[in-house]
Each structure stands twice: as C-alpha cells, then as structure tokens.
C-alpha cells in the first residue's frame, strides 16, 4: 500500500522553482476551460429550470431552457412540505461539529502517528488505513442498535458522533505532517522546554493549517451530503438537509419541480461557502496536495 503512495525517489523541496514553466493560456485553453466550467454548473442550472416548470412543461419538445418566477413558488412549497430552514440550521450544526471534531482529532492522531514513536503505532495505523476500504452501508444496523440503546434516536448527536472521526483524515494528516513538519522544528521547541501540548499548538498546528483546511472542506462537504445514515437515525421532524430533501414531494404524486427547487435550496449554502471562501479553500487544496 505504501509503495503505491510513496515515490521511489525521495524528493527535495529546496532548490527548485516549481511551476515556473507554465505558459500563458491561449484562446484554445480558455475555450476549453469555459466549456468545462459550463459543464460543471449545467446540472445545477438545469435543476433551476426544472424547478420552474411543471412535469408537463418540462416534457415539451423543445424543452424550456430558462427558469422563471415559478421557481420561488416551488421553493416556498418545498419549505411548506419540509422544515428546510431548520434542516439547514441542523446541517450547519452537524457538518460543522463533524468538521471541527474530525480536523481536531485527526490532526492530533495524525501528529502522533507522524512524529511520536510509541509501541504499536505501526499496527494501529495499518488498522486505520484498512478500514478506509470497508463499505459503510452495513454498519447502520449495529450502529442504530447502539444509538437506540443510548436513547439518541432523532437527535443530532446520533449523526454527529459516529462520523466525528475519519480514517481518511488520520491518514491524510499523518502523511502531510511527516514531511511538512521538520523534526528540527520540534527539537527546537523541545530544547526551549516546551511540553508536548505546547509544541502541538504552537508548532504543529500552524504547520498543519493548509492540510487542516483541505480536510475541513472535504469533511464538511461529505457530511453535508451524507444521507444514508441520517435518514435512518433522524425523522422528518428534526432533519438534516438531505433528510428533508428526501421527504420532499410527499404524496402519491412526486412533484418534481418542488423536489428540484428544494434540492437546489439545500445545495445553496455550500455554493455560498464556495463563492465566499473559494480562494482560501482552493488555495488550501493546493498547499495540501503538494505535500500530502
């Protein structure tokens, strides 16, 4: 497994000028990028269109290509059918807590695996990586039995706690910190008489920040979009966004326009985060990926 991930030749990061040979983009490059960008947002745009038209209208030939004000009617219909406002608040709480927990615990553990030597660390890390490969769907039954035992059914901690850590996160942070965090820096801290905790917060965390940003974003998106477990652990009375969306269009009749409108509304907060923090997030990925 490591052989896959580790290049045969050790690399040095000093004495190079990375990325200096990138040429200026020509018209062809811009055209292709614009095309890729359009493809990226098209399905979202299409859900805006579909959210503005009835089934009959959308099935017409040629189909409509523009959204209209009906969209807002459908949004409010969606909000009547499911407590989307509450759902968004819940999802922010859930995804936010999971993100904070994952980043914190995985950074702690990643640091320990990367830099602290203790008996059995190799075996433990192998265990962590091994579980990345386990299909998760089946875990819901025993998980639900535990949640029921704890009387957590329908409450948010039922969806927060089981996903509070991730094996991927530990592995990711560990891989990042092994190189990004020079032992000399830790030694210097040690010589100054700093405790391990002090070293963690004053030396490790600042160095780990780009990777933490990446992990935070991935975790937030995954948590936001998770529906398999929440749909079982929560009910429509206290839903996350994905649970609420799954409950849209109630009745024998699926009102697709309402479902589409609600779905788009549920994606909106994430898009907003992207629009506002795009630079930081993408920058974080860059920094993380270079080292991680």
């Amino acid at each position: 497994m490591t052989a896959v991930l580790t290049p045969p030749t050790p690399a040095r990061t000093s004495g190079r000028r990375p990325g200096t040979k990138a040429g200026r983009a020509g018209p062809v490059a811009y055209t292709l990028l614009v095309l890729a960008g359009l493809l990226s947002v098209f399905p979202l745009y299409w859900s805006l269109v579909a959210g503005s038209h009835t089934n009959a209208e959308i099935a017409a030939t040629p189909p409509p290509f523009l959204p209209n004000a009906t969209f807002f009617e459908n949004v409010s219909a969606a909000m009547d059918q499911a407590p989307l406002g509450l759902a968004i608040v819940n999802s922010v709480v859930v995804a936010g807590s999971i993100t904070v927990g994952t980043v914190l615990f995985c950074t702690l553990a990643g640091f320990a695996f990367a830099k602290l030597r203790f008996r059995g660390s190799g075996g433990l890390l192998a265990l962590v990586v091994g579980t990345m490969m386990v299909p998760t769907q089946l875990a819901v039954i025993p998980l639900f039995m535990m949640i029921a035992e704890l009387k957590w059914v329908d409450s948010l901690q039922a969806v927060v706690l089981p996903t509070l850590v991730s094996a991927f996160g530990v592995f990711f942070m560990r891989q990042y910190l092994v190189t990004a965090l020079p032992d000399e820096l830790l030694e210097a801290g040690r010589v100054d008489g700093a405790s391990t905790h002090r070293i963690f917060f004053s030396i490790v965390v600042p160095v780990a920040r780009p990777a933490m940003a990446v992990l935070a974003m991935l975790t937030f998106l995954t948590a936001w979009n998770e529906f398999f477990w929440p749909i079982i652990a929560l009910t429509a009375a206290n839903p996350t966004v994905q649970v609420a969306i799954a409950n849209l269009g109630s009745g024998y009749v699926p009102q697709r326009a309402v479902i589409m409108a609600g779905t788009l509304l549920g994606t909106l907060p994430v898009l907003l985060v992207f629009a506002l923090l795009g630079k930081q997030i993408v920058g974080g990925i860059m920094a993380g990926a270079v080292k991680g």
Binding site: W224, T263, A275
Partner: peptide
C-alpha cells in the same frame, strides 16, 4: 472554484438531474 462545484453537489441532486 468552478471545477469543484460538481463535488459540492450531492449525489442525489446530481443523479436526479
């Protein structure tokens, strides 16, 4: 940022469309 929009879209929303 644009390239990451699909990743931010949920599987359910994407598949529906």
């Amino acid at each position: 940022t644009l390239m990451l929009v699909p990743y931010a879209t949920s599987i359910a929303a994407a598949t529906l469309v």
